[in-house]
Design a protein around this nucleic acid. Structure first.
Length: 257
DNA sequence: AACATGTACAACCGCAAGGAC
DNA sequence: TGTCCTTGCGGTTGTACATGT
């Protein structure tokens, strides 16, 4: 699968703006199925798996941002009681929400409830909290999740890779001290505007992702691309450009200015 | 103001399913 | 039919920000 020499240069950890732009562009061009291919041709030093995750959980234009609405919370509770930890299945019922997001939400909130229950059931506690003691916390899957404790660990992210740049782009993260940060910080809106402008300049995506995304269930997650139409850029023999330095590095230069 | 704790989110890993050869 | 590879899923962990003390 991955050669040893590749392992040494593969990047891990937070994505940079530059990587996001590259990935978004390549997904726009080739569709969101062939992740290994995208990982290779995009020039990203990431695995296909990592590319897919980044796209599905962060870059996908149909994603909602912000906190769960009460209605969504209700749906999560409802579907979880039905299906348990089938997060992807639950996510299909909540347009714009990812399985990861729902999973995180559930974990955070159920941990909280478990703690409340613990307090409420503790003999030494006079704190009464019956209203928050939902039957959900008796779910064994939840209980098992709640057993995990955070311990001191070695830093999770290996920042020793090439071109490691602090992840300054996350929505809520405003790094105040990022003297090493040389790249322009783009918002996702800017990234999509860049792609739009590319399309206006003759680059055509294989599939119009963005106009097609409507927040109805299934649609966001279930669309597929016509495999035979991967090469739809205006112009001549695009296939000849694959794997060469003529095309792909240039695309990110176009995007980044 | 400083520190501790809680919350939200991003991203990794391991495993399994399914398709291609 | 068996093996390999890719993709997707669920679990877990790390980090930044928010809030409380």
């Amino acid at each position: 699968m991955v050669h040893i020499e590749d392992d040494e240069t593969l990047r891990k950890g937070p994505w940079t703006e530059h990587e996001d732009v590259q990935l978004a562009f390549n997904v726009n061009m080739f569709g969101d199925r062939r992740w290994d291919f995208i990982a290779k041709v995009s020039g990203l030093k990431r695995t296909g798996k990592s590319c897919r995750l980044r796209w599905v959980n962060y870059l996908h234009p149909g994603l909602k941002r912000g906190r769960m609405t009460p209605h969504e919370e209700k749906l999560v509770l409802e579907y979880h009681s039905k299906w348990g930890n089938r997060w992807s299945r639950i996510a299909r019922k909540l347009p714009g929400r990812t399985d990861n997001e729902i999973k995180n939400y559930w974990r955070t909130h159920m941990r909280k409830k478990a703690q409340e229950n613990k307090r409420a059931s503790s003999p030494s506690s006079s704190f009464s909290n019956s209203s928050s003691s939902s039957s959900i916390t008796h779910d064994p899957t939840v209980d098992s999740m709640l057993l995990t404790e955070t311990k001191d660990r070695i830093s999770f992210y290996d920042t020793g890779g090439i071109e490691m740049v602090p992840a300054t782009h996350r929505g809520k993260n405003n790094y105040k001290d990022s003297s090493e940060e040389q790249e322009k910080v783009y918002s996702m809106d800017e990234i999509w505007e860049d792609i739009d402008s590319l399309e206006n300049n003759g680059f055509k995506p294989v599939f119009d992702l963005y106009s097609n995304v409507t927040p109805s269930s299934h649609q966001i997650w279930d669309y597929s691309y016509p495999v035979n139409n991967f090469w739809m850029m205006d112009g001549g023999d695009q296939q000849d450009l694959i794997g060469t330095d003529m095309f792909f590095p240039a695309t990110s230069e176009v995007l980044l200015g």
